[in-house]
Design a protein around this nucleic acid. Structure first.
Lengths: 143, 143
DNA sequence: ATGATTGCAAAGAATTTGCAGCTCT
DNA sequence: AGAGCTGCAAATTCTTTGCAATCAT
């Protein structure tokens, strides 16, 4: 079983691209934070570890990670693009609190299979989907 | 039953905002095109009818229409924000062809009720949701 | 060696805002 | 009259790109 750095290295090698300290550090920082990071947040964290790294390199690395399928962009409807590690993860969707921003990963087999079926009924071959549920969490409602 | 212009006028009046020829024209243009318009496309169409209208006014009006709940932003995953008329429409989701961009409005009761239930199971009061299914349509596959 | 990568600054793209004059109510 | 609007241009925000120096293989 390969670890994330190895997976990324494989992807880079396959594209004749190079493993660099910056790329390693950015990926490592991303993984340490986990959760759902924006480019901005990631850049801030990366700079704490190596202040010489430029913003553009973070953008470029996120792009590579995304193309490689290792991470995926998320849309929490607050105008910020966030990413999450996706490789090897079971697919899931997100339940987001409009008030505090808390987000919970969810998965429902009933929905997943109906999606597949729905697409088929319309002659589509389903490739992927996005589902976001927005509401107010119990904490925020009890305040 | 009020028409869109009346609904918009009501919203504006309620906020002590004004009905202006520009706002009327922008909404009218939006409705004539229907479908799923980006700000860019809408602006282009608006300019055909009144070239003196500025881009900023289109942005400002779309913002108002969105706040009023009359229209809603869509994410077809092609990097462009589009809007659709939403007031009085039954809720629906979208099935989008990654190849040709075709999009079909879909609705599935099974999914809708499971979403409600899922949110509840996590202590959330569900306010809204977004679901997009991406795939390849039959036309594009048979080419 | 040599093609890829980096940081920087400049460039872009999309959207927002300040302002002076004009318009709706 | 007077708060709200408008078009314009300048300003923001987020992201990408050109470039000369540097690095990975």
């Amino acid at each position: 079983m390969k670890n994330p750095q190895e997976l990324f290295a494989d992807y880079l090698a396959d594209k004749n691209l190079k493993v660099t300290p910056q790329r390693r550090l950015i990926l490592d920082t991303f993984l340490k934070q986990d959760g759902h990071l924006s480019s901005e947040e990631l850049y801030a964290n990366v700079k704490k570890r190596d202040s010489s790294i430029g913003q553009a390199t973070v953008y470029r690395t996120l792009k590579l990670l995304n193309e490689s399928g290792l991470i995926e962009p998320l849309d929490f409807a607050d105008g910020v693009v966030r990413y999450e590690w996706s490789y090897g993860q079971t697919h899931h969707d997100h339940l987001i609190c409009d008030k505090c921003g808390k987000n919970i990963e969810i998965l429902d087999e009933t929905i997943e299979s109906r999606q597949e079926q729905l697409a088929e009924e319309h002659g589509f071959k389903l490739l992927r989907h996005k589902m976001y549920l927005y509401g107010i969490c119990s904490d925020c409602r009890s305040k």
